[in-house]
């Protein structure tokens, strides 16, 4: 059986004004797969993620062509784009605690979706904070400010927020740049756990992290997919493209 994939991207082109940053890329992500995207800065990784959940719509100068399908449905034709964004969770690279209490940070998305019963929210908040490995540190001060947390805690709060709307696909954009190695490992464990139920797209600059977590890895460079293969191949001594080898082994450029 081959139903629709979780994400299918066909000839996606994205331009900011006259400057094209994604030059027609195609790939797909299967259900419960962990796909890593690696590549240097300015290669279009974040822009690509923004096309998936259509937050690219907020960039006035952006023009998108090609198709992005989520569960077989063209994201540009969905009626409820806010519902779409709830099914594709997004963790931004910089930790952003919203200026409200820790509880409200996590309860914000469910509330926007119309969940208001206190009991439901309580359960959800605890589950998400536990999944983001933050619960033990904040359970006694859920009323204090999300922005008053340390950088690493705010990053995990961001992850908890992304989980709070129970997405089917979770995109993480360099989630570990503000977190210490120990916490990073804890969150990686959580991601492994989560990957049994949901699809994960992981943008990372840590080559080792991609190798640990992802079954397949994409090397994106200057808005083009240089290589997309199983992580074993990408991180081996013999990837198909010389540039991949150079990048992964730190002799790029």
């Amino acid at each position: 059986m081959s139903g629709p994939k979780a994400i299918e991207v066909q000839d996606l082109r994205l331009a900011y004004g006259a400057r094209e940053v994604l030059h027609g890329i195609s790939f797909d992500v299967g259900h419960n797969e962990v796909l890593a995207i690696i590549g240097p800065a300015q290669s279009g990784k974040t822009s690509l993620l923004r096309c998936l959940n259509r937050t690219i719509d907020f960039v006035g100068s952006a023009t998108v062509s090609g198709t992005v399908r989520f569960e077989g449905e063209d994201v540009h034709k969905v009626k409820d784009v806010f519902g779409l964004r709830r099914r594709i969770g997004m963790v931004a690279p910089l930790p952003v605690g919203l200026p409200m209490s820790i509880y409200d940070n996590v309860a914000f998305a469910p509330r926007c979706a119309g969940v208001h019963r206190r009991g439901d929210l309580d359960t959800l908040v605890e589950t998400c904070l536990r999944q983001a490995a933050l619960w033990d540190e904040v359970k006694d001060r859920l009323d204090s400010l999300g922005t008053a947390l340390s950088g690493g805690q705010q990053q995990r709060l961001t992850i908890a927020r992304a989980l709070s709307h129970q997405p089917d696909v979770l995109c993480l954009d360099e989630f570990s740049i503000a977190i210490d190695p120990v916490t990073t490992m804890r969150i990686e464990d959580v991601l492994k756990e989560l990957s049994r139920e949901i699809t994960i797209i992981l943008v990372t600059n840590l080559v080792q992290q991609a190798r640990r977590l992802a079954s397949r890895t994409m090397f994106l460079w200057n808005g083009e997919i240089v290589e997309l293969d199983t992580s074993d191949v990408i991180f081996s001594n013999r990837p198909n493209d010389r540039r991949t080898y150079d990048y992964v082994h730190g002799i790029f450029g």
């Binding site: 937050t55 964004r85 969770g89 919203l98 998305a109 926007c112 992304a162």
Partner: peptide, 16 residues
């Protein structure tokens, strides 16, 4: 801007 983007990412409308 990051605050707004964080809200949009979790499916909030502009007004929310």
């Amino acid at each position: 801007m990051a605050f707004r983007e964080a809200c949009w990412n979790v499916g909030a409308t502009r007004w929310q």
